[in-house]
Amino acid sequence: MAVAKESPATPSTFARVGLVMYLLLIVYASLFPFTGWRDNGIAPQAFLSGPLPHYWTVFDVLTNVVGYVPFGILVAFAVYPHVRGMGAILLALVAGTLLSGSMEAAQTFLPSRVSSILDLYTNVSGSLIGGIAGVLLTPTFLEQSRFLSLRRHWFFHDAGRGLIVASLWPLAQIYPQAYLFGHGQIVPILSEWLSDWLEQPVDLFTSLQNNIDFTVEQYWLAETIITACGMAGAVLLLLVTLKPAAPRAWLAWALVGATLILKSLANALLFNPANAFSWLTPGAQGGLLFAAAMLFGLSFAPQVAQRRIAVLMLLISLIVVNLMPSNPYFMATLQSWVQGKFLNFNGAARFLSVMWPFFAFWYLLHPSHRVKRT
């Protein structure tokens, strides 16, 4: 009797792309806010021989540990099947040590950040925990399993990149935004960079708006457009990754539901419970309804059309969110949050909010879509 041969182990594109994105996230979070660089006469490696900080909290320690756990997991997944077991754990440990040490050394030149040997210890611990978890989870996620079988049944073989981008969309809601799903607001960042470079205040918002005074109705219309286009683009991106056999409607609305729940929880935790649903403005309500109507029809469109329309929707949202000013209430709310002490967390959240549309464009315009999908 013939014995069926097991499929050979293959590298995970999902893990490797995820590792690169998470690496960028750590770098941005560690070096946020990227302003005020200067040489204060302290050697970059001085923190290695420095004392432990006099003031620290359990929250800070746990955040530093937990922040590097996904990095360790992704390292173990990314090197599979070439490196496994103890080798993958050691590689995650070394990678975490080098990354954390580099970030702490770079923080020496940022007056708003403080390099600490405690941060290195906690980050390395997180990488080690992640490496161990990654090795233990490898059979479930990367080898023959019901989970992997389900993924192959529901998603195209090249869907790993898209799944990562889609899974980052709910997390991008954590950072306070002037408009619901208003990601990619790069004009304020460019204004800050130009101000530092030219050593004088630069306000690109004012230049782009040409001193136009927007009415309340125009603000509502802008938020409706941003919300509708942002939601439609994100859901269409997910649909592009799905095979016809997948429960497309269920997965799409699960993504939207998880995103809105996380948005509400973030508002409640970062500000107060009374602000949990502050995002549900009249403009956002209209945008959600318009997006639902568009998606009902577009869900039946060919995948090529869905991909192109997703690019168009996200591009419209990106343009409008960078042309419209933020209302004074939102700016006051954002100021009270950004001045908090959790700069790493603030920087990571801002990074996701700003960069998510560009991750989406990268996936939707990737050359792999020109090849016949299976």
Rank of each mutant, 00 (worst) to 15 (best):
A291H: 08
L31F: 08
S145R: 04
H153F: 13
A293D: 03
S125A: 14
I26W: 13
T97V: 10
F156L: 05
L91A: 06
T227C: 11
R373Y: 10
G18P: 13
G162C: 07
A76V: 10
V235I: 14
S317G: 15
I26V: 15
V94T: 07
L137V: 09
T108P: 09
F359A: 00
F156G: 09
G96A: 07
S317T: 03
M331P: 07
E217I: 04
H82F: 14
R152Q: 13
F147G: 00
L48P: 14
I319P: 15
S195G: 06
P325T: 09
Q285Y: 13
A92C: 10
I261T: 11
A254G: 13
L128Q: 02
Q107H: 04
L343V: 12
L239M: 14
P170D: 02
G18F: 06
M294G: 15
G233S: 08
G67D: 02
R152W: 08
A172R: 01
S127Q: 07
V235T: 11
Y68T: 05
S299E: 06
M21F: 15
I26K: 14
G18N: 02
L242F: 08
V17W: 14
G184H: 03
A266T: 03
T206P: 01
R370A: 05
Y121C: 00
R350V: 00
I319A: 12
V135K: 05
M21K: 09
P188E: 09
A291K: 08
L288S: 11
W169D: 01
Y179E: 02
P111L: 00
L190D: 03
M355C: 10
V20Y: 13
A95T: 09
I73N: 04
E217F: 10
P244W: 01
P244C: 01
A249S: 12
V20G: 11
F205W: 12
S49Q: 13
F205D: 08
S353M: 07
T281W: 11
